[in-house]
């Protein structure tokens, strides 16, 4: 790794569809992957709703962009932190979320989990360790 690599964390706090924050943030994340930085994602507060499983938008006519989160592994974005308290406050568990995985090039392309459940305090620590934190 070159010394020019910085730690970027995108912190997602808004529900999808009702506002455009989630979609815009996802696009920035995908673009950022082109710059070979150390990128991680966090989902807290209503942001956890961005990656719920089984999103079906036929009835509302919205563009379903949830499948794109499953491509994050292809973009070498494989550190995804979910805040435990945010799930609990919303009556959710990890089972309500999509499985997000990546294939580890250094381990014969073994499929590994990208999602890490962290507490609010742990997420605060992780955010402190970043060079750049982009919140939406």
């Amino acid at each position: 790794m070159s010394e020019n690599i910085k730690k970027f964390m995108f912190v997602n706090t808004k529900a999808p569809y009702g506002t455009v924050y989630a979609l815009e943030s996802l696009e920035v994340v995908l673009i950022s992957a082109a710059f070979d930085q150390d990128v991680s994602l966090a989902f807290c507060d209503d942001g956890v709703f961005q990656i719920t499983d089984n999103q079906k938008t036929d009835g509302s006519g919205m563009k379903n962009f949830s499948a794109a989160y499953k491509a994050l592994g292809d973009y070498d974005i494989n550190k995804i932190y979910i805040e435990k308290e945010s799930l609990e406050e919303r009556g959710l568990t990890l089972d309500n979320l999509m499985k997000l995985t990546y294939e580890d090039e250094d381990d014969d392309w073994a499929e590994k989990d990208s999602i890490h459940l962290v507490t609010r305090a742990e997420l605060a620590d992780l955010m402190d360790k970043q060079d750049v934190t982009i919140s939406s």
Binding site: A33, N64, A67, A68, K70, A71, D74, Y75
Partner: peptide, 17 residues
């Protein structure tokens, strides 16, 4: 599958595989 057009880097890696 993913509702996005992959970036060139992603395309290259996936085609290699």
């Amino acid at each position: 599958e993913y509702q996005i057009a992959p970036a060139v880097r992603v395309l290259t890696k996936a085609v290699a595989k």
